[in-house]
Design a protein around this nucleic acid. Structure first.
Lengths: 344, 344
DNA sequence: CTGAAAGCGCTTACAG
DNA sequence: CTGAAAGCGCTTACAG
């Protein structure tokens, strides 16, 4: 009896050697016959296939991977903290990307490995077999990116990493997104718009702030920017909004960028005895379940995440295959405003 | 110069042999020093760690996996067709399970591999490195399960596979779920309830039908069961409902089991000139975005999927580790009815 | 306590 | 056209 290979259930699996012995050929011939990579005498090939079928032979993908240097898998990572990326229903930005990325990756023969943010510490990437990774909205100096670069793994980021000039990315068009939102809020009558945004240095935050400040200057209005630690999630959005309303009396619109903040913002406005949208209009970026399910539903932006995910996987596959893509970045589809009760 | 190993980006990575040479010890000593698996003279261990750090050594997880027989990854598979599992926003049952399973698996040092249903053909499971898999609501004779069993991979199903008596599973308590829904519909005044359900032989469908028939008998009402091919998604739900309403005139409630069907059901009722819930009450099983975002929002059941996912991963890890768990199945949390506008 | 060897199961050059 | 050998990069017994 052969030794087991550690996993009780998988002991004694038929190997290519077993097939070779029974079919009386060399192991390499079995390999070639089964993979079709090289010509093998049709009669012999047929015999090999028959034996393999009889023995229930299944190739060991890890052994194959060691030789070929491919894991046939890519990771999807996010350093966005749990209060935001996850939350009670956990059906947000990252999972929408995950679903689309997984579907497309599978079409290309790759599995998608889901690496959610960890509550504490870094995920044990060491242990995972990956050919590359997608990173969702990394911030400047994101340790995730650093770790992947250390592992010499190809990376594509969804949303450029600030300063990550050598890393291929999908341009989420955050400037345009911000333009859309501010234009809408102003057009619907807002005079004094506040911006509530995450603290970390992610490109979407940075670009939104730039546009916000420009607009406020044009409008001759004083900017009111509140930066929130993302870990706080909805509760932090709530508290920040209460404070803001206590200090600034003439706010009549809030772009509460992160959807988790935005639901907190709505709650805070109501608790302050004010109405959404009558007294204060609210908008958020990601048009996910959180925005849609809120009462009232929150105006948001359709970012075309299915297309984003697909482009990202494409770029990553190019990078894994060592193809130097003409462009190191791809554009997301144009953002589309979805107006809802929170602002009209 | 060393040969590359196939992936352009990962050529010439430092190996344990490089470290061994530079630190003037045996490769096995490097392995032991770095893993801490065996005692190594502290001075030597320190030297090894220093060299490894300098060289930027990262262990090759595939090589490690070949030797140890572990991929440190589990799969999440669903044979539910795309119209149902996916759909435009793709944020459904499977993704909610995925998010929770991934988070818990990561805590246990495992990655979660997302294997969505393929449009055509079977996914290339051969190529994926897995220690086991979770299968979502398999039907009788599900080829996914067959494939996994052929690969001798441990499997846990979320929802028992009909006839799958040897496969550990999470009991989704579909009988109780059905009881809750029918009790609610009857209590809210329904006299003639129709059941609209998928065609394949999944446990949740089977159990729901059993309860439905019992209830109708008690009520002295004629059962009206419509079985729909799942691939049809919302459109099939729409068409089936139109046909049903054309044939049966006194239907005043529909349990449209699959959420994709249920939104079609609501649309069909309206197109027939009737109102939800005034003329016909509607309920569905999975309390996801689809049910919540519908107009009117659809009464549904909270199945506690986070707990379900966690239990499933636990059971799977037991099975992978060869531990014979006391129980081969675990119970989902009690289903909880979420009453919404579609039925009240 | 540590080293040298064998081996995980394939695939890839190298011979013939 | 096919076989025998080497090798992917680790870890696991086996020696000492």
């Amino acid at each position: 009896m052969k030794r087991t290979n550690g996993t009780a259930e998988r002991k004694n699996r038929t190997t290519i050697l077993d097939i070779a012995r029974r079919a009386e050929v060399a192991p390499s011939t079995v390999s070639n016959a089964l993979s079709g990579r090289r010509y093998v005498d049709p009669q012999i090939a047929e015999r090999i296939r028959k034996v393999a079928a009889e023995e229930g032979y299944v190739p060991n993908s890890i052994a194959r991977g060691l030789r070929s240097g491919k894991a046939n898998a890519i990771g999807l990572l996010s350093s966005m903290p749990f209060g935001v990326a996850g939350g009670s229903s956990r059906l947000g930005f990252m999972m929408e990307l995950a679903a689309a990325a997984a579907a497309y990756a599978l079409q290309r023969g790759l599995a998608l490995l889901l690496v959610p943010p960890m509550e504490a510490g870094r995920p044990p990437l060491q242990n995972f077999m990956l050919d590359g990774a997608l990173v969702v909205e990394p911030f400047a100096g994101d340790p995730f990116i650093q770790q992947l670069v250390d592992y010499a793994l190809p990376v594509v980021t969804i949303g450029k990493q600030p300063g990550g000039d050598d890393i291929p990315f999908i341009d989420l068009r955050s400037r345009e997104t911000a333009e859309l939102v501010f234009y809408h809020l102003i057009e619907s009558g807002a005079q004094r718009i506040a911006l509530m945004i995450g603290k970390s240095r992610r490109t979407s935050y940075i670009e939104t702030q730039v546009i916000y400040i420009e607009r406020m200057k044009q409008l001759g209005a004083l900017p009111a920017i509140v930066e929130i630690a993302e870990e706080g999630g909805e509760q932090a959005g709530y508290e920040a909004t209460r404070e803001l309303l206590a200090k600034e009396k003439n706010i009549d619109a809030i772009f509460s960028f992160v959807d988790a903040f935005a639901t907190g913002t709505c709650r805070a406005i109501r608790d302050a005895g004010l109405g959404v949208p009558e007294d204060i209009r609210v908008a958020t970026r990601y048009d996910g379940p959180r925005a849609r399910d809120n009462d009232p539903p929150i105006t948001a932006v359709d970012l075309g995440l299915s297309d984003v995910a697909e482009s990202a996987v494409k770029l990553l596959i190019d990078s894994i295959d060592g193809r130097q893509p003409g462009k190191k970045s791809l554009l997301a589809p144009p953002p589309r405003l979805v107006v809802r009760g929170s602002s009209s």
